[in-house]
């Protein structure tokens, strides 16, 4: 199992009576790719924060890649996230004043797994695969087009060879042409490296890239009985 959630409840500490997440049970096998759709405000980002170990559940078990995130110290969760989980946002995936190369290098710093020479080779390989021309490697990220930025974001999310990739509306700011290109390259890399993918979007047209499609409202029932 890549993900195994049991009786997960979550509410923000400042609003103890307002439950944001209530997930009785949800699992995802290793290597599986799931498309989760749902309206914004449905606890989507909260769920992803719990999966990535940014948030601790108020109650319940969060098992990711065979490790109980809810039982780890925050330091260990940070390291676990750096080494095993790739994460992509809708936008602002890169530090705007660092160049593409350094953005990826920074992500690898927190996992501390690779030596410099092989890391550089790795980054160059990834950027080439993602079709970023070498001229753009050393330009500040803010000068890249949105399409380029999202592709660099894939490289950034994958540099540590994570087993799990979480993508939070990564295509929402892309035009249809870029969207198609993005999905193509993302899914081929994911398949090639046997990465488990949790892909969240409100855009149902993307669901035909996936075998498993779920609605957030089926997974999360905050109104249901505790």
């Amino acid at each position: 199992m890549a993900i195994d959630l049991k009786d997960v409840n979550f509410h923000y500490p400042e609003e103890p009576n307002q439950r944001v997440l209530h997930i009785p049970s949800w699992t995802l096998s290793a290597g599986e790719q799931v498309f989760i759709h749902g309206p914004s405000g449905g606890g989507k980002s909260t769920l992803l924060s719990v999966l990535s170990g940014l948030f601790l559940p108020s109650e319940g078990q969060v098992n990711v890649l065979g490790q109980r995130l809810d039982q780890m110290t925050s330091r260990r969760r940070d390291r676990f996230r750096a080494r095993h989980i790739g994460y992509m946002f809708q936008q602002f995936n890169l530090i705007p004043y660092l160049n593409a190369f350094d953005n990826i290098r920074l992500a690898s710093q927190f996992s501390q797994q690779k030596k410099t020479p092989e890391l550089h080779e790795e980054i160059q390989k990834l950027l080439s695969v993602l079709n970023i021309s070498a001229n753009d490697w050393y330009r500040p990220a803010r000068h890249l087009s949105i399409g380029q930025q999202q592709r660099v974001a894939i490289a950034r999310a994958l540099i540590n060879k994570p087993e799990l990739l979480i993508a939070d509306e990564p295509t929402s700011s892309l035009d249809p042409l870029n969207k198609e290109a993005f999905m193509g390259v993302l899914l081929s890399i994911v398949a090639e490296n046997d990465i488990t993918l949790v892909f969240v979007s409100h855009d149902l047209s993307l669901s035909n890239y996936f075998n498993r499609i779920e609605s957030l409202s089926d997974i999360n029932r905050p109104e249901g009985s505790a």
């Binding site: 990535s52 940014l54 925050s74 330091r75 940070d78 390291r79 996230r81 750096a82 080494r83 994460y87 946002f89 602002f92 995936n93 890169l94 530090i95 705007p96 920074l106 992500a107 927190f110 996992s111 950034r156």
Partner: peptide, 14 residues
């Protein structure tokens, strides 16, 4: 804020 969020997500401890 966004930058901090990004750093956290790539594994930076608080």
């Amino acid at each position: 804020n966004r930058e901090i969020q990004l750093l956290r997500v790539i594994g930076a401890p608080a």
